[in-house]
């Protein structure tokens, strides 16, 4: 593995919380991983194992007690909050279980929002956003509000939004958790295909072993450590 191919690396990440009773709970005890350009990884683990906490730490949304996280070789703990936010907007996309679409915006406007926030919205990028909606099968829903769409459609909009900035990696936390099995399968297949097509790395947190099997590497978070399955 060439170091230049590693786009995201987390080393020896530790994180503990204090329970209301004062008890210290060590969630991450030196977890680490590295993600190569364009590869897809799945991360599984029991509920409460710390998957979402680990994802937040490698996304720079939460700080670790110790350890290091790098994006394209840049240590994110050495960046100011503003610089980190800007870099994150360019570097990664997010897909969450509960879609997190802005209810006042149409599907297309929700996708374009990611471009607006990173200051990349122009005629070409707007066209690209439309193309992405077409790719996820929602070209006829471009002007529909989230309230007028089904759960599967909302999640496809969220996927298009995550990918529209051409990020190096997408972090997805249970993206099909709110969908029925059939829709979940359809959305996940489309998601994986799209990431492969765009050469975007994917870190997928999932409980579903079938979805995990579709990724190129499968990891498990167990006892605060990340291990290969």
């Amino acid at each position: 593995m060439n170091n230049l191919d590693v786009i995201l690396a987390a080393e020896d990440v530790k994180k503990s919380f204090r329970s209301p009773g004062g008890e210290v709970i060590e969630v991450l005890r030196g977890a680490g991983l590295s993600v190569l350009r364009g590869e897809s990884l799945s991360l599984r683990g029991e509920s409460g194992a710390g998957k979402s906490t680990f994802l937040n730490i490698i996304a720079g949304l939460e700080s670790a007690d110790s350890g290091a996280v790098s994006w394209d070789g840049t240590r994110i703990d050495e960046l100011s909050n503003g610089r980190q936010a800007k870099l994150r907007g360019d570097f990664m996309g997010f897909v969450f279980q509960n879609y997190c679409l802005v209810p006042e915006l149409t599907a297309l406007q929700n996708v374009e929002l990611a471009l607006r926030i990173t200051g990349k919205l122009d005629k070409n990028s707007s066209e690209y956003a439309r193309d992405l909606l077409k790719t996820v099968g929602l070209e006829k829903r471009a002007k529909h509000l989230p309230s007028q769409m089904s759960g599967g459609e909302k999640q496809r909009v969220a996927i298009a939004r995550a990918i529209v900035n051409r990020p190096r990696i997408i972090l997805a936390d249970e993206p099909t958790g709110n969908l029925d099995e059939e829709t979940g399968k359809h959305v996940m297949n489309m998601f994986l295909d799209l990431c492969a097509q765009k050469n975007t790395a994917l870190l997928l947190i999932t409980h579903n072993p079938d979805f995990a099997r579709k990724t190129s590497r499968r990891l498990v978070l167990k006892h605060g450590l990340v291990v290969e399955e």
Binding site: L61, G89, G93, C100, V102
Partner: peptide, 13 residues
């Protein structure tokens, strides 16, 4: 949640 996501997408406080 939407505000959280906007923050994650690169928005500053």
């Amino acid at each position: 949640r939407e505000i959280g996501l906007i923050g994650a997408m690169g928005a500053r406080p």
